[in-house]
Design a binder for these strands. Structure first.
Lengths: 336, 336
DNA sequence: ACTTGACATGCAACCGGTTGCATGAAAACT
DNA sequence: AGTTTTCATGCAACCGGTTGCATGTCAAGT
């Protein structure tokens, strides 16, 4: 029916109310500057015409866009939706809108998306970025930037400190008398993966537990399933997977081989995004991705207000959530 | 370190290249209007200064914002991420950016978000909106609008036609000799739920199968788990759940009661968002939410180009994906 | 009554681009 | 050579707001 609809402008309201454009503007932004009657008159006219301030025009003249871009590698990875959701809500409460970008785990696309957002966002949040430190620095020079799950000197970030949770997990398994454990690893470029691997190795070493590592291609269900063969070949009786998706793949791979969890093999995931949704309910390392999303926005907003490129760090603690996928190994039952 | 960074403007580039601002503008938007040498000179200057066109300024003067808002009730519901992702990619390929809004299943918040997006988006996509028809009409009058999973006369929409898939599911179960089936329903306001319930009842009636319905509060894991008791009380030997999340809850509830799937009970989900990720792998009705996301953007872009508020409809077919949660009931094994 | 100040409002420039029209120079035509 | 056409470029207005400063009015101060 109707064609391109021209919005009602400040000028039309001004005419209708018999005032200058600037007064209309002030009626909306600083009403205390105007007499109450004038404000009322303007508001009445505005309501009547159905006036809505134009976000874009306002942004152009003030330089405050009221938008934030959030860029993630893969929306479909269950780690991210809670994070995005929390970020959204936090931004919302400060009257900011969120641009969402999905990079398909691809650094180039990440660059490209950032480019597309310039000139319409006040700040940028990069979650688990795949870009090089250099590129990230370059962007951080032009725009307030907060990283999630990436640690680069001089750039603010929200870090999920998996090391505690991983240590708890290894200790938990050791207490159950597992003598050999395997780490099913994630993307080598991932900061989280490196951190988890290190904590795994370190804790195991301290406890005198034997270790092995099985690499995977991507953090997803299929990779986990395919890793099962190599995992079993290590002779380990328990495993910790890079994330819950991978763990779920492992769970399925084990079931397909008739290997029962936790009776025959103990498994722990990371991120706790599937939680009790699997069966048996997956023991996992909780990492509150939603808190990360919320904190990242809060950090960014703070940087915007103080208008300086601070180098802040927000650490998020993790802890083990024990459910039903861990138990003593057979060897322990007989020997202990 | 650096304060608020002023971007390089067209004027600076113009000065550097010794041309008028308009020429710089044209060099980027319609280079064929300029002599190749001039374009080169301008581009060189722009590169050297690190010029990036300001999206906002451009939007203001052209009226083309290059942005689309996508509003969903709950990002964390696994039905949506694939949809959002597909929408993102489709928008991306047309150089559009996506604003994401999360309404927390709340109609008021939906209204509020839409308001915040006005004046910076060219179009709106509402996925499974909780708003009244009237409110949606009001918004559609001001902005090109596409609905997903909601059917309102006069407004374009992308509809996932579950009826075929549900009919297939009921038929599949009937062929396995199930004589009584239960539908674990979703939100009453949901268009999809009504559609599924109707298809369920109709097909069952046609096949002479006995039916029952169990209500749930929200489409999530817990609701499914809590529905198990009522579900079993119906005496049905098979069930179809409103969505996969609910089905997964049911799966867990059954397992907790020692009821084996599919040996003792057959279960089918909807949306196929968890797919083979559950164990046993869930038989489900595939509904390609990603296709819905892609199609919605395509539709919207088409409306923007033809610049008319067309009333288009895109139907998405569904079909049953049989995995490992359905089998003949005990009664059938003995009797047949 | 005359100055001073406070306050409400208007004027006009500006944010960073885009675009219709005017201009001038070179190319094509007679 | 004189005139018309073509083409590249510049000028200036405009998109819809915001904001520093100027102006006018009215009440308070002396």
């Amino acid at each position: 029916m109707s064609k391109h609809i021209k919005g009602v402008t400040i000028s039309q309201v001004a005419d209708a109310a018999g005032v200058a454009r600037s007064s209309v503007s002030r009626a909306f932004t600083r009403p205390e500057m105007l007499s109450p009657e004038t404000v009322n008159r303007i508001m009445a006219a505005a309501d009547q015409l159905g006036y809505r301030p134009n976000h874009t025009a306002r942004a152009l003249s003030t330089g405050r866009y009221g938008n934030i871009a959030l860029i993630v590698p893969d929306i479909a990875n269950p780690f991210f939706p809670p994070m995005i959701r929390a970020a959204q809500m936090q931004a919302d409460s400060a009257n900011f809108c969120i641009f969402l970008g999905n990079t398909e785990e691809n650094g180039e696309k990440e660059d490209q998306l950032i480019g597309r957002f310039t000139g319409q966002v006040e700040g940028l949040i990069l979650a688990s970025p795949r870009l090089s430190d250099e590129r990230i620095w370059a962007h951080a020079e032009k725009l307030p930037l907060v990283l999630i799950n990436r640690d680069i000197p001089g750039i603010s970030s929200v870090l999920i400190d998996s090391s505690v949770g991983v240590a708890e997990a290894v200790t938990h398994l050791a207490k159950l008398h597992h003598r050999k454990m395997v780490y099913i690893s994630g993307p080598p470029v991932s900061w989280s993966n490196r951190q988890r691997q290190e904590a795994f190795d370190k804790t195991a070493l301290a406890l005198g537990v034997e270790t092995a590592t099985v690499p995977t291609l991507r953090p997803d269900f299929e990779s986990g399933r395919k890793a099962v063969e190599a995992m079993l070949a290590t002779g380990a009786t328990a495993g910790i997977a890079f994330d819950d998706l991978t763990a779920q793949g492992v769970l399925t791979g084990l079931a397909e081989r008739g290997i029962s969890v936790p009776a025959d093999f103990s498994l722990i995931g990371c991120d706790d995004v599937l939680g009790s949704v699997t069966y048996p309910a997956l023991t996992s390392i909780s990492s509150q991705s939603s808190e990360a999303g919320q904190a990242a926005i809060a950090l960014l907003l703070e940087m915007l207000q103080t208008s300086k490129h601070a180098d802040l760090r927000h650490m998020i603690a993790t802890h083990l959530v024990v459910r039903n996928t861990t138990r003593e190994p057979h060897s322990a039952v007989t020997s202990g």
